[in-house]
């Protein structure tokens, strides 16, 4: 399956899971709302041009916004992580290894430790920006802090479960391919 087709399918599946599964779960607490959809952006291929990455992030967020009736909210957060992603990858990994060998970020391609840091940083960045924008209307600092921590915990748990259910086979790329 080509990378493009795979990512288009992921785009739709992540969107549908977020809208019709996670958003329908009755909230346990006001601090907790489960988010998983942004994992799509974290799973995009390494060698995507940065401009395209930012644009895809924006568009993906906007698509979710159409369903949640909050135009711009998720788009802003997704654009942010899509923009920051390349910096983080260059920081975490030596460039020549990643470009030749693997297609996309995963436990296998980045290593256990690096991948966890990658997920943790981008997830907290996404949630902080998202909740901050939401908080501008509410204006209670405890709410802001609590919601970031609550959603962060739930999201990390969801990502862990996703990684365990779908172990992506990282294709090893050699020069002949």
């Amino acid at each position: 399956m080509s990378d493009l087709l795979k990512n288009i399918i992921r785009f739709v599946v992540f969107l549908l899971v977020q809208v019709f599964l996670l958003n329908r779960i009755p909230p346990l607490h006001r601090f907790i709302s489960p988010y998983l959809y942004f994992l799509f952006i974290l799973w995009l291929p390494f060698k995507m041009p940065r401009l395209a990455l930012t644009l895809v992030g924006f568009f993906f967020g906007l698509c979710l916004d159409f369903f949640t009736k909050t135009p711009g909210l998720h788009a802003a957060a997704c654009t942010l992580i899509a923009y920051v992603r390349p910096f983080l990858i260059t920081l975490l990994m030596p460039k020549e290894i990643m470009e030749i060998n693997y297609a996309e970020p995963s436990i296998k391609s980045m290593g256990w430790m690096q991948y966890s840091v990658y997920i943790l940083v981008l997830t907290s960045l996404h949630h902080t920006w998202l909740v901050f924008l939401e908080w501008l209307e509410v204006g209670d600092f405890l709410y802001f802090l609590g919601k970031v921590m609550g959603t962060l915990t739930v999201s990390l748990l969801l990502i862990l479960i996703t990684e365990m259910i779908f172990p992506r086979k990282a294709r090893y790329r050699n020069n002949s391919a």
């Binding site: 924006f58 909050t70 942010l80």
Partner: peptide
Amino acid sequence: INLLFFLFLQVVALTLLFSYNKFHEA
């Protein structure tokens, strides 16, 4: 270009968000 494009998209997103909440009818 990357930074400028990113900032542009952020501004678009925030404009959408705040104008929608105010007037309810984008």
